[in-house]
Design a protein around this nucleic acid. Structure first.
Lengths: 142, 142
DNA sequence: TGTTGGCTTAAAGTGCGCTTCATAGTTTAT
DNA sequence: ATAAACTATGAAGCGCACTTTAAGCCAACA
């Protein structure tokens, strides 16, 4: 069992955030000592990590809340959960695609800057030239 | 040259967002007809697309603003821009790693749900069993 | 005994990235 | 000439995900 502070250290979230997640019902009600202080179990910690995993993929709080609520209602909600997770997956793949594009942009820019910095002489690259260099460096479509 | 509405249609952003970006100086001042209505050039459109690319990787407005400002100041700012883009790249890679973890989670869950739905008999899978199934389904560390 | 430190709560505040609103001028079509 | 459609502006508003604040409880220590 872990105190609020310990749970925060383990997960890397703040105690305030952990309370917030509990209030929003992303977490089950956390056990208390002396009917007052929270005591996070190992299972709670694992649960928090799953939430962090979803949040890391920008799944909204309200959606996680709904998912968790279905989970608690038992196996009858599996079809609904299946649909939700399918949506999560699609969304994650879409985000990945966006990130790949942006990564290609950064790589193109870095190569461009390296080329320029390599040259001993001063240069007068303009806004336009740089931009075109990016365009032709090419980010793949789709 | 494109009207506000056309530019919005082409880019998929709203005219309000385009105005907002211009106000925040992510875009250069857009040319006007009759000293009043905006006329977006092809170059403006390309510029907007680059901003969309960065925003798609969650680069904050204020950071893009700074980057664009350096860009306009000419090639003397290339070392600073290089550093910025390097940070973007690192951040994008970190986001990708988070997305990969979440993707693994969704895939694990989908497989789990498929297995269950495949079974003809009713079942009484609990919250705990499902969770453990995820843990053991295994998201790779790091 | 009092004061320090960790914990509690509800409620208000914050920062971001837009979006909407209120108001008004312009252009095009009928 | 008038209506419909489009555009402009500044300012206010919004949804999200927290974060901070204020007030207070409880246990241990000097």
């Amino acid at each position: 069992m872990y105190s609020a502070k310990e749970a925060a250290e383990i997960t890397g979230l703040s105690t305030a955030t952990l309370r917030y997640y509990e209030k929003e019902k992303l977490l089950p009600p956390i056990a208390r000592t002396t009917q007052k202080y929270r005591q996070y179990s190992d299972e709670d910690i694992e649960w928090i990590k799953m939430i962090q995993c979803l949040r890391g993929a920008n799944v909204p709080i309200h959606s996680i809340k709904k998912y968790v609520s279905l989970l608690r209602q038992g196996s009858g909600t599996i079809p609904q959960r299946y649909e939700m997770v399918l949506e999560y997956k699609k969304d994650i793949e879409s985000q990945m695609s966006d990130l790949k594009n942006a990564l290609a942009l950064t790589q193109s820019k870095l190569m461009f800057y390296q080329e320029i910095l390599k040259q001993p002489c001063g240069n007068n690259m303009t806004y336009l030239e740089e931009w075109h260099s990016f365009k032709n460096g090419g980010i793949g479509e789709k």
